[in-house]
Design a protein around this nucleic acid. Structure first.
Lengths: 339, 339
DNA sequence: GTGAAAGCGCTAACAA
DNA sequence: TTGTTAGCGCTTTCAC
């Protein structure tokens, strides 16, 4: 029960392989009668062209590699979805790799690179040397990384957090703020923290204490809340590196006796689908993550087989979304999400 | 700046392509001197074997396809990680596809199938006909699906929820229970709902009302909470189809004035990393999702190029985890998670 | 409009 | 130990 090949079809239909090939790609210069004959054989034998043979002949895989730090969390899911939407449109595929900050990730990435036409890499997942090596061989687009000679798609986290913290300081008169979720290895987080410091400096304030270094997942928000509570270091406002951490806070602080926003103000970053639906609703920064994925994928794929991409930086817009958790009145009905 | 091929190396090193091929795969029967010469040429020309050529010669892609309903949520992330861990071990890759219940997903899946050696499919994502067609062509393993002639890796959601609800009824004397997150299209959800009904029937109770049909993401838990509140239909206990829904509840109910577990008991399913860290901590069912991914991937890959897999059903163990949200005293410190 | 043949990069019998 | 050669499945000139 082997899969039939072009040759099988050719023999069965009494034509040459070239003709079969022409039929499969709708070449107009095939007589209708022969086309029908070939088509019949194709359905009868259950033939479908091998992606492999095609890839070899075309010298491309029709596949895009996506390198992420980890696989969990809505951020990466959105990014993947964005990339996938592009590849699906053009009939190619996405191969994902979660480096998980593994030591042997360069090896894994090379493995990935060896079977894809282009790479989209999230900033902070790979060392500069590996990145440069890869970029010498194929189109590489960095997402949410610090621009460093490679085409980059990002948002301006610094400006966004600056605006957000500005709001907290000016509108709500907060003076005792702490940043949660700093990760020196993630350019994205660093940018947000920088915005936090900028805003404080502009207001003549200094941070309540060193930023809390925890991972970017919900569970770490919950842990950080417990830790701050236990240490008696709960500040007046918690500026979280992302919504997941903030939501972990929201789910934990009330149980520890804190009212939000009366006792503690909590803000996030990303505008997670949940942000508008938790209680209190979460003030955050909206970031077009899906679009980041789309843009990066389009860019990377557009460069396949062409000139290398210019090392431009595409900055997609963000905006602050004011909700209840910062003390603002809830502006409207919870955003509609179709189930 | 073309990539060098075997032939380039062969010419450069003054040997035949066969010898180059032997060197690249560490064939012992190559003289040390020629090996060195070849190795030198390889590094000098910057050669790396094309996965494509290799794949064509071997007639396999060294890639595993993973078909998921969607890309978001910790469940799928874990599953992917599990699958990825085994493919990484053997030097192959994972291609993911989120069907998102799209109408054209059969097309996308076939596209995926055309470039992978085996498939792992989450139950409920594909119609039986498509599944059967695929299974006729390559190894297919179903995860968390209803067994139907295909090898299946699953947990017994029915038994698990039965045990959980039994606990709620017997230990906490609850009699007014509602199931949240029913999705007739997901075998997994159906199994859990069945366990819910079983337990009620065994206790001579009937459900509070028709199960709330919402998606399986956090945001829908939050929405369902608001909806039940608005309708004045809040039951005494909410049995959620997964932890995400339960966490959405936990994040929302207090803001609406309900105390957990005093006013409303909330339980989930999955034992999400956050479950032990939210407040109150979440009573749930632990499910070895990562291992489901591992097992399914191993099974699928083991059948590549071999006899078809027997349509066995592997059932991995689950266990109920009692925490605060059902009214149990918190048994211990929050579970440790290394940041 | 159709076919023959070369070639994409690699592996593996079979020879030498 | 090394080389020759024939594929793997497909596309694509170039003849006819």
């Amino acid at each position: 029960m082997k899969k039939p090949t072009v040759r099988d079809i050719a023999r069965h239909a009494g034509v040459s392989v070239a003709t079969v090939s022409r039929v499969t790609k709708d070449d107009p210069k095939v007589a209708a009668s022969t086309r029908d004959r070939v088509l019949a054989s194709i359905t009868e034998l259950g033939y479908s062209p091998s992606a492999l043979g095609r890839a070899l002949a075309f010298q491309r895989f029709d596949a895009l590699g996506l390198v992420l730090p980890g696989l969990s969390g809505p951020y990466f899911a959105e990014l993947m979805s964005g990339a996938e939407s592009v590849t699906l449109r053009v009939g190619s595929a996405v191969l994902v790799l979660g480096t998980h900050l593994r030591a042997d990730s360069p090896k894994a990435v090379r493995q990935l690179a060896a079977r894809t036409d282009a790479l989209v890499v999230v900033g902070g997942t790979l060392g500069d040397a590996v990145l440069a090596e890869l970029a010498g061989r194929m189109p590489v687009v960095v997402v949410a990384g610090a621009p460093d000679g490679l085409p980059t798609v990002r948002t301006d986290g610094t400006a966004a957090v600056r605006a957000l913290v500005d709001h907290l300081v000016r509108q709500h008169g907060l003076r005792d703020l702490l940043f949660v979720g700093h990760d020196p290895g993630s350019p994205d987080t660093v940018a947000r923290y920088t915005g936090f410091l900028d805003a404080l400096a502009a207001a003549g304030l200094s941070e309540r204490g060193a930023p809390v270094q925890v991972g970017l997942e919900t569970v770490f928000g919950a842990m950080a809340a417990r830790r701050l509570h236990a240490a008696g270091r709960m500040p007046r406002a918690l500026v979280c590196a992302n919504d997941e951490i903030a939501i972990g806070m929201l789910a934990t602080l009330p149980g520890l006796g804190y009212r939000i926003p009366d006792d503690v103000v909590v803000v996030g970053f990303d505008d997670h689908a949940l942000a508008a639906n938790v209680s209190p609703t979460l003030t955050t920064v909206h970031q077009p993550v899906f679009e980041l994925g789309v843009k990066a994928a389009e860019l990377a794929m557009s460069a396949v087989g062409r000139d290398p991409l210019p090392a431009d930086v595409w900055t997609l817009p963000t905006h602050v979304v004011l909700r209840e958790s910062c003390g603002c009145p809830h502006p409207q009905e919870p955003e509609q999400v179709v189930p």
